[in-house]
């Protein structure tokens, strides 16, 4: 089989450049295999994150030919091999080294979210239909690719005011949990800045778990915020339709 040419970002906070590597192609190979090959044969200190190699842990995110992807699920035979494949770190996060970025900001945002808070004296019974909708959100593997692609973070650097799609997904999972009693609309409006999202759907497009981030999480959450803040009638209707939620 022939070889593929890679151009991989090598560098750290002080700067860096694309470095070329040549890798023999094997059947079914993914980009992460190529990175491992380079580590074993050419650049033992190439910094890369990975764990499961099967799209389950969300560690191996990077930008392949400019697109945010899981490198363990990006097949080489799906890429044009007549030109070099570029692999760069996620742009929205500060670089640590090579393909490894500092994603600690995400963990700080996560800490602001009040936990699951069950209603008092619930019987722990739930129907699969009610659970289905929330299970979609709980599929999230925290690859942070949606955070990487979202222009509010990527181009406008609004990390202080904006939680990002990943955390809208997480909050949706709590808000729509059949037995949760808290309301997180204050948080969504004020600290998470959900209003800054203008529904471009870029996040949904890159999500490797096929979570319908915009349609199923963000839009319903935006509606809740609107209801709670601006529309007393709908707020009232929802109150009687849904179980009341504490604020």
């Amino acid at each position: 089989m022939s070889d593929a040419i890679f151009k991989i970002f090598r560098g750290d906070r002080g700067g860096g450049k694309l470095v070329e590597y040549q890798v023999p192609i094997a059947p079914g190979m993914v980009v992460l295999d190529a990175l491992h090959y380079i580590q074993a044969h050419q650049a033992p200190d190439l910094a890369v994150r990975w764990n499961c190699k099967a799209g389950k842990c969300g560690s191996c995110s990077a930008e392949v030919n400019g697109r945010p992807r899981l490198t363990c699920k990006t097949r080489m035979d799906a890429l044009p091999l007549n030109e070099p494949i570029t692999v760069q770190p996620m742009k929205s996060f500060p670089i640590i080294r090579d393909l490894v970025t500092d994603v600690s900001w995400n963990y700080r945002v996560n800490r602001k979210i009040p936990p699951f808070t069950p209603r008092a004296d619930v019987e722990w019974k739930m129907g699969q239909r009610d659970v289905d909708r929330v299970q979609e959100f709980r599929k999230c593997i925290e690859c942070f690719l949606c955070q990487d692609v979202c222009h509010v973070l990527r181009d406008h650097d609004k990390g202080e005011q904006f939680g990002g799609p990943r955390f809208f997904v997480r909050i949706a999972g709590l808000e729509m949990h059949p037995l949760d009693r808290l309301s997180r609309t204050d948080l969504l409006k004020n600290e998470m800045g959900i209003g800054l999202c203008n529904i471009t759907k870029c996040c949904t497009e890159v999500c490797p778990e096929d979570i319908h981030i915009t349609d199923n999480a963000i839009i319903p959450l935006k509606e809740r915020v609107v209801d709670d803040y601006y529309d007393p009638v709908r707020w009232f209707l929802r109150k009687i339709k849904r179980q009341p939620k504490d604020k």
């Binding site: 722990w124 019974k125 739930m126 129907g127 699969q128 929330v134 709980r138 709590l174 949990h177 949760d180």
Partner: peptide, 14 residues
Amino acid sequence: EQWGALFDRTSSGD
């Protein structure tokens, strides 16, 4: 489950 995990359900909700 009480900490928020959502398992698949039986028809009676368990």
